[in-house]
Design a protein around this nucleic acid. Structure first.
Lengths: 119, 119
DNA sequence: CCACGAGATCGACGTCGATCAATCTCTTGT
DNA sequence: ACAAGAGATTGATCGACGTCGATCTCGTGG
């Protein structure tokens, strides 16, 4: 019987999560925090990773399902998944031998909201 | 009398602009194109640049207004403005000695729309 | 208890990008 | 026509990052 494990870094602090871009000049710290999360998705491989997971049945996929479509090695895929998880954009759940990853829609929505003009 | 000059790269092709992230797996080309534009804003200095311009009166600022608040050299600021302009996120207009930059809200909105889940 | 397999970590390598000083271009004012 | 100033470009430097092979960890099955 597969038991879920945390296994990943806890979600990063959400207290600085939603400072709007249009209201006032960002502080160096706010800009750094936002940039870290945007860098997580500003990579072609990670964008493809997200899109593949989102279009999989059950909205989840294990690492082994991703190496093939991406044409990348397993360590590289794990590296990218770790970055996405550190940014809170995906969560991984260990079920038996495999680790299944799901996208966190709220995290994506929050990122979109920050860069939306007039929002 | 100041005459406006193009002086910047034309806006990048908008034909691949809006492929949604959630509908289907992105191709390598689509992911690359999206990543280029996301990289433009995935930098703390450029995020601060955008926020400063957006919160300036008239929604515009010249390069000389930006070096001070950012604490960076003039060539570095020009470098970042060029990157933002190449991604179509800002446009520059030469007026006399100074070049004034404005944010392109539609470009920001398009970027936000792509990463919006369920969109 | 041991072999196998999935996934995470480590170390190394190559490339890209942020930054600056120096220089170049162009406009303004004298 | 010339000096001054704003901004863009160039070249160099240094750190960050993507990628891989090798190794490590851990759960599964015999």
């Amino acid at each position: 019987m597969p038991k879920p494990l945390p296994l990943l870094d806890p979600l990063p602090s959400a207290d600085v999560c939603c400072t709007p871009l249009t209201s006032a000049p960002l502080s160096a710290e706010q800009a750094e925090d936002l940039a870290v999360r945007l860098k997580a998705i500003a990579d072609p491989t990670r964008l493809r990773l997200l899109s593949i997971v989102l279009s999989s049945q059950g909205m989840e996929a294990c690492t082994c399902d991703l190496t093939g479509p991406l044409g990348l090695s397993q360590p590289t895929v794990s590296h990218h998944l770790k970055k996405l998880a550190a940014a809170g954009l995906v969560v991984g759940e260990r079920r038996g031998t495999w680790t299944y990853y799901r996208v966190v829609p709220d995290a994506l929505a929050a990122l979109a909201a920050v860069i939306t003009p007039g929002g």
